[in-house]
């Protein structure tokens, strides 16, 4: 029944997090710091992964669909839709669960074991609200931008393949990525990313907040945060896809 206890504990924490901050001024001071730490500082990894995956996806699609019956624009179309529907929203969030999730869990976990959270509580501060709410709000606010950015950079990766290799022509690629564009796919990706951003930050904060002991426990909390948020992302990906696309 440990899992039931964990779920209960998680929702109790979330209830404590979503209360009115002791001072809005302190919340709005933390918010831009968290936006920079969690969102802006993730741009590097988003750029690198998106550009390479976009490029590789273009090459793989082209090489595996060598069929005269398929239109030449299909490579661009498949690359675009894969990026929009799954890569930039789901796979990118799984990668960010590793980077951002471990960052949050280890930061809050270390604050717990070094009594910094106790210090906040003794002062009369709602520590869960003060520490976790700005992280959730910051990441949820920035995630749609990261996802859209990832889509753009991924498409650019494919374009670079077309431009600098003989795999596909630029004309075919550019035509493909514009062909039969469904704007709803972007909405779908953004909705998913908002849910995933909430999962990543709240689950990581939960494991960090309840870390007790020493460095070993903080490490374990960090691992649990990444593993469990990744599993939840996959589960909610299935649920949201069924709700929004089927």
């Amino acid at each position: 029944m440990q899992w039931l206890k964990t779920i209960g504990q998680y929702f109790i924490l979330i209830k404590t997090v979503f209360t009115k901050p002791d001072r809005w001024k302190m919340f709005f001071r933390q918010l831009p710091k968290e936006m920079e730490n969690l969102g802006v500082n993730s741009l590097g990894i988003v750029i690198i992964i998106s550009i390479f995956i976009g490029a590789i996806m273009t090459i793989q699609t082209k090489l595996n669909t060598e069929n005269p019956l398929l239109p030449r624009y299909s490579t661009g179309l498949v690359t675009r839709d894969t990026l929009l529907l799954e890569f930039s929203s789901t796979i990118m969030c799984l990668i960010l669960a590793g980077k951002v999730g471990s960052n949050i869990a280890s930061e809050i976990g270390t604050m717990r074991i070094t009594e910094q959270i106790d210090a906040l509580e003794i002062m009369g501060v709602n520590s869960a609200n003060y520490l976790i709410l700005p992280k959730i709000v910051a990441f949820v606010l920035l995630m749609p931008f990261l996802v859209i950015f990832s889509m753009g950079v991924g498409l650019l990766g494919g374009y670079m393949v077309a431009e600098f290799s003989d795999v596909i022509t630029v004309t075919d690629y550019v035509y493909g990525i514009q062909y039969a564009f469904i704007p709803y796919y972007v909405t779908y990706a953004i909705v998913k990313s908002l849910v995933f951003a909430f999962i990543i930050t709240s689950v990581a904060a939960f494991y960090g907040y309840y870390a007790y002991g020493g460095a070993l426990e903080v490490g374990k909390a960090s691992t649990k945060a990444v593993v469990n948020s990744s599993v939840l992302i996959l589960l909610f990906n299935l649920i949201l896809t069924n709700l929004m696309l089927v």
């Binding site: 002791d22 302190m26 604050m111 070094t114 009594e115 910094q116 002062m123 501060v125």
Partner: peptide, 23 residues
């Protein structure tokens, strides 16, 4: 606290300012 429990991300001055700004 036994281990001081100062906030790592804040300077000494900011640590002392924290309760003042909060309350």
């Amino acid at each position: 606290f036994q281990g001081s429990a100062l906030f790592d991300s804040l300077t000494v001055f900011e640590n002392v300012m924290f309760p003042l700004e909060m309350f």
